[in-house]
Amino acid sequence: MVRVAEEALGRTPLYEEHEKAGARLVPFAGWEMPVQYEGVKAEHEAVRNHAGLFDVSHMGEVVFRGPDAEKAVQRLVTRDVGRLETGQAGYAAVCYESGGTVDDVLVYKNPDDFLVVVNAANREKDVAHFQEHTDGLDVEIADESDDWALLALQGPKAEGILQGFTGTDLSGLKYYRYVVGEVDGLYAVISRTGYTGEDGFELYVRPDGAAPLWRLLVEAGAAPVGLGARDTLRLEAGMCLYGNELDPETTPLEAGIAFAVHLDKEERFLGQEALRREREEGLRKKLVGFKVEGRGIARHEHPVAVDGETVGTVTSGTQSPTLGEAIGLALVLPEVEDSFDVVIRDRPVKARTAQLPFYKRQKK
């Protein structure tokens, strides 16, 4: 019997840097990615207190060009991208007609086109979805993911570190705004965005510029950070992860990202009617944050119960390095109130809802 070889994992342009730094590399969304270097807790604290550097080059970049580019993006995403100014980014969901979630994305409005940044695991699915639902529009949809590397420099010292290598005045760059400029002579899209709850930047550079830029920022004091701490940081910040809080069976309203859903926008988007109905008739489930009061750490897919009856499922959970408490997110029935049990290894453990985000940085 012939065994079919598993498809080779992708490697980002920073793979050799991770190897040299002694990273523990694991398969993630079809890529060989660093899960940690020094350790999740130390890396998490570096981002909260100083600055951390992430390789997120596995993310996908899809560009919409042509006379109907804006119309196409409007049809596909929940945010009204007509409200975006050139040089501004917006967080949005992509939905099926049912209201279920295809992906959560960032939309960048360029002078002549739109860049939609998609999750790595969804790249092929998203591009197929985009093409399927833009029939009749004069638009070119190009997957340009292989033309870019993406580094995220995050933390309170991120601006100070980056400012030493760019002529762009970063102090004037607002949250969710971006500029095209240079970092140490390398062409870069400098975006004040992130997935950690801290101030910081995402830097889109050409693949051959990724390793020199990585080494430069590490030498300037940024700590390399892996996917492990990326997850604990985003969870403390109450941010959704596709495949956990969001999936085809969960709408953006249920996942608590209604701020990214503009039901009133004139250009109809896929899933709009289903989401309008859901808003009028009520949610089938809702996302809540919680803290575990008993012993144990809640994990993805642990059941949530009230009086022995299952009322939902944990979507994400961890021991919070910042709070020193076990925290989590769960999708539960709308009638669930402020306390419930999380079933950890067949044992019900008390938990109480907590306001999101768990952690909010002090603004300057």
Rank of each mutant, 00 (worst) to 15 (best):
F54A: 01
P334D: 00
E43V: 08
V139Q: 07
E266P: 05
Y178K: 00
P321K: 09
R295K: 14
P67Y: 01
L25Y: 02
K364S: 13
Y178A: 00
G172T: 11
G90C: 04
P67G: 04
L331S: 05
N110L: 13
T232D: 07
A120F: 07
R177T: 08
E61L: 11
E70R: 10
G271P: 10
V139T: 07
V35I: 15
L241K: 13
L227M: 14
D199E: 14
M239Y: 14
V77F: 06
V304W: 07
R177F: 05
T101S: 12
G308I: 12
R215S: 12
T232S: 13
A120K: 10
Y108L: 06
E273V: 14
Y204A: 13
R215N: 13
V342D: 08
A8F: 02
W214I: 10
P207I: 09
V225N: 05
G30C: 05
V218D: 01
S145E: 01
A237G: 06
K265S: 01
R177V: 01
R345L: 08
L162A: 12
F259N: 15
H44P: 11
A128R: 15
F358T: 11
M33T: 11
A21R: 13
P248W: 00
A211H: 14
F54Q: 11
D135E: 15
Q272E: 09
G200E: 00
H129D: 08
R177Q: 11
L227P: 10
G185V: 12
T134A: 06
G282Q: 02
D147S: 11
L329N: 04
C95Y: 06
V349R: 05
Q88N: 03
K286W: 06
Y176S: 08
G197P: 05
P334C: 00
F165G: 04
A260T: 13
A158S: 15
T12H: 06
F130E: 06
S98M: 04
A8E: 15
R215Y: 03
P156D: 01
R48D: 08
Q319D: 09
P252Y: 00
E198V: 09
L253Q: 04
V218K: 03
L227T: 14
E19N: 03
A93D: 03
T134K: 03
L333P: 02
R123H: 11
W148T: 05
V139N: 07
K41C: 00
F340C: 09
K71N: 06
R177P: 00
G10P: 05
A298V: 00
G167L: 12
T250D: 08
V107K: 08
A158M: 07
L323K: 13
T251H: 01
H44N: 09
P321V: 12
L153A: 07
R3P: 13
K125H: 14
E85F: 03
I190Q: 00
A142I: 15
V77Y: 03
A149D: 05
V73R: 08
A220R: 06
F340R: 05
D338L: 01
R192F: 02
H129N: 10
Y37R: 07
E32V: 05
E202M: 02
C95H: 05
